[in-house]
Computed example of a mutant assay.
Amino acid sequence: MALQPSLHPLLILGSPTAPHTLDFFLDFVCPFSKKSALNAINGVLRGKLLAPGGPYDGKVKVILRLQVQPWHVTSMLTHESALAVLRLAPERFWDYATALFEHQDEYFDIPTADLTPTQIRAKLAALAASVIGQDKEAAVLDLLALKGSPNGGNAVTDDLKYLIKFSRQNSIHVSPTVLLNGLVANEISSSWGEKEWTDFLAQKAAL
């Protein structure tokens, strides 16, 4: 499991010792990533196949790889906010990620066209606070605030760099992209339902 210690909560489903690994490279403002997150991960994998007592409980783990897509203006900002939540409330990280996907249309290009990055960060901090607690809104904003040198980023910039470098190093270009045991599984579609996932795991993840 290639995750630096600060990013271990990106293991969002299953046991670290599960022999098979699904890596989901998702972008918070990608509609197809939303389908993968809400339908595949929440609906099929978390809800059924990998759930306690499910057929792949203890056999498959799911890692979320944050895939910043620079052609979406707010992609970096939404991912920054997720990394802030990862630090402040790692146990609620996937809940916040789900909220980002559910509210993603608020962060599309046109709805945010007249907002400054500071205003968008404040909006994201408010969304985060609705998930992890209103008392943490100021802490989220503090992590997202630009500090230090004029071009030095914020408190989560180094984690963001790690994730972007990881994707580039592994030639991941589009979202969603799913890996099984380190190899791209091009056959996986964001439109897959329970039958397709059941058939895929029966073939690929049998012990």
Rank of each mutant, 00 (worst) to 15 (best):
M1L: 15
S6C: 11
L7Q: 03
P9L: 07
P9Y: 05
I12G: 03
G14Q: 01
S15L: 08
F24E: 04
V29C: 02
V29L: 01
F32H: 11
K34A: 13
L38T: 10
V44H: 01
L45S: 00
L45N: 00
K48G: 06
L50S: 02
K59C: 08
V62I: 04
Q67M: 11
H72G: 02
V73G: 12
V73Y: 14
S75G: 06
M76L: 15
T78H: 09
A82C: 10
A82R: 01
V85H: 02
V85C: 05
V85L: 07
L86I: 08
R87D: 06
L88T: 07
A89R: 13
D95G: 11
A99H: 11
A99F: 09
E102D: 10
D105C: 09
D109H: 15
P111M: 02
T112H: 08
D114S: 15
T118M: 14
L124E: 05
L124A: 07
L127R: 06
D135T: 10
A138L: 07
A139C: 08
L141Y: 09
L141P: 10
L143Y: 03
L144G: 06
A145V: 07
G148T: 08
N151G: 14
G152E: 05
L160D: 08
L160Q: 13
L163E: 08
L163A: 07
F166K: 11
R168E: 11
Q169K: 15
N170D: 10
V174K: 15
V174C: 14
V178P: 00
S189T: 07
S190D: 13
S190M: 10
S191N: 14
G193R: 07
K195F: 10
L201I: 05
L201S: 05
A202N: 12
A202W: 09
Q203F: 10
Q203N: 11
A205D: 03
